[in-house]
Nucleic acid binder design. Structure first.
Lengths: 300, 300
DNA sequence: ATGCTGCACTTAATAATTTAATACACTGTT
DNA sequence: AACAGTGTATTAAATTATTAAGTGCAGCAT
């Protein structure tokens, strides 16, 4: 019924490993210094030292701390395994929403999500609070959360917003200095697009990865913390919806390749206007595709 | 040590008020129906009915519930006063940051913020989690949160992002249909700008409000949930920084009035290109002002 | 003087606890 | 039988309590 002592356990093992580098009789560094090396506060260090003294690994009296014996594997302390990564919660959550086609206005139970994603409840609450800033979820008056996403209006607004960001990125790219990494990336992408176009009949499903790489390259020109967060969400959503809308996938992808190439060529010619126009065209197609993929799933 | 029963208390008083509309001996509606009218679940309704029965206001046996006597003021139950509004936490928080000029990289203590803003800790955590999506705060590895904002790079990226959104809004405004409310708003704004320009020597400090109205009008043309959230934050930050940078406030405001008028005129002439150009000019000035106001405060 | 420790106090993470919502079976009535 | 309502059990959400961890300061030893 309180916070876990994982921090202490990890620090303890780290200190123990440090002891192995000492020789019996050696003096240990100060608490402050140990804290710095282990990356924890003195409070935790003192707990570690207490245990070390109890096990007879060290003697400890005030500032006099000496190694009494070489630590054995039995001295180590068990660390509860970290639990599934909490960092990619966003990816997994959106994946879940899109894969199971969770309909708009579904009530989200923190308790249930906590179990399915194996993440503590309070982290989920924070995560959902973050998503609510993107308008993906909202609080229910009777408590808990509600999924908002993937109605028609959502898709339209998302597409529009994406267009604004991406057209801006294209404009910036056109004016990027010659030594900017984007140019070599675009050269590579151009070659890969041409290669895929030659084998489009069989390899058309490989376009998805190429698409992601292309848009990432373009957007990487704009270094902006406010857009960065959005891009992740946006690309995930578009990515998944494309993967499922299997209607005319081959033709769609072939067309998209040409659209990408048009943008790349305009950029390489440093023709900002042409690049913007080509991008606008491509984004328009994207929006249509996203909307029609929604229509196939539900009528939200 | 558990959640509050405010929901029950409020529901109880509501049900009591409903009882007053009945006559002694009347039958009460079903639990489900009462729940619907009071906006709570049956669980709460049953608690309410229990108390009503205890106080002898009603008789209750299964589905037989009758009003025994007219409720008196003494039957009401005390409701803990709501506590300071939690809805404007964002406004108050940003206000606090900007007013006290909280420096970048300051550690934010949830406990302390909870006291200063009189808001439960868990709500603050959710709030901060939301702000972290905007890149305003971030988690510290050792726990808690850290304020990121108001370095030079932050101001630059914020300005750039604002420009992207606002230029897009201007483009949309130029193509808004004649019956769109923005046109009458712009006409009003135009008049108010001219009026203020005539008395700029004495009333220059009134520009701040006008500025906010102007940008709000422009941005209201774009109906997009993703931009809406950002606009609130952006306008607050710009708003406050302008208020404090008192250097040459009069000249700055006079110049800004002319810039606004140029945008308005171009829009009224439906000249999208000219409007964009004028807006770009204005946003450039804004950015410079924001940056120089930072320089006066600190060197973050 | 300076760095280290002892100690007290504050804060953060997390589980426990109570309130509230919900699902389902049962019952009486038409 | 169908339906609306209630009794009851299960589950979830909000909020507090509790423990772990961080932080600051006074005093002490070198």
């Amino acid at each position: 019924m309180a916070r876990s002592d994982t921090r202490y356990r990890e620090a303890y093992n780290r200190i123990l490993a440090f002891c192995e580098t000492l020789r019996v009789g050696d003096d240990m560094p100060s608490e402050t210094r140990l804290g710095e090396t282990a990356g924890v506060s003195r409070t935790v260090i003192r707990r570690c030292l207490s245990r070390l003294a109890e096990l007879g690994v060290i003697s400890w009296d005030g500032r006099d701390k000496r190694l009494l014996r070489v630590p054995t594997p039995g001295d180590r302390i068990a660390v509860p395994d970290a639990g599934s990564d909490t960092s990619d919660l966003e990816q997994r959550f959106l994946d879940w929403v899109l894969r199971f086609d969770v309909p708009a206005n579904t009530a989200l139970s923190v308790a249930e999500l906590s179990r399915t994603f194996d993440v503590p409840q309070h982290e989920l609450k924070e995560f959902l609070a973050g998503l609510s800033r993107f308008g993906l979820v909202t609080r229910r008056p009777e408590g808990g959360w509600r999924l908002l996403g993937f109605t028609k209006s959502f898709a339209i607004e998302l597409s529009d917003f994406r267009s604004v960001l991406e057209l801006n990125a294209v404009s910036h790219a056109a004016e990027a200095p010659v030594d900017h990494p984007v140019w070599s990336q675009l050269a590579d992408l151009r070659a890969d697009h041409l290669r895929l176009r030659a084998h489009i009949d069989t390899d058309f499903h490989e376009f998805s990865k190429l698409d992601e790489r292309f848009h990432q390259a373009i957007n990487s020109v704009v270094r902006n913390r406010f857009t960065a967060e959005f891009q992740k969400v946006i690309s995930l959503i578009f990515h998944y919806h494309y993967m499922w809308d299997k209607t005319e996938e081959k033709t769609r992808n072939a067309a998209a390749i040409d659209e990408h190439l048009a943008i790349i060529e305009a950029l390489e010619a440093r023709d900002a206007e042409a690049a913007r126009a080509a991008a606008q065209e491509h984004l328009r197609t994207s929006k249509t595709t996203l909307l029609s993929s929604l229509r196939h799933h539900d009528l939200g």
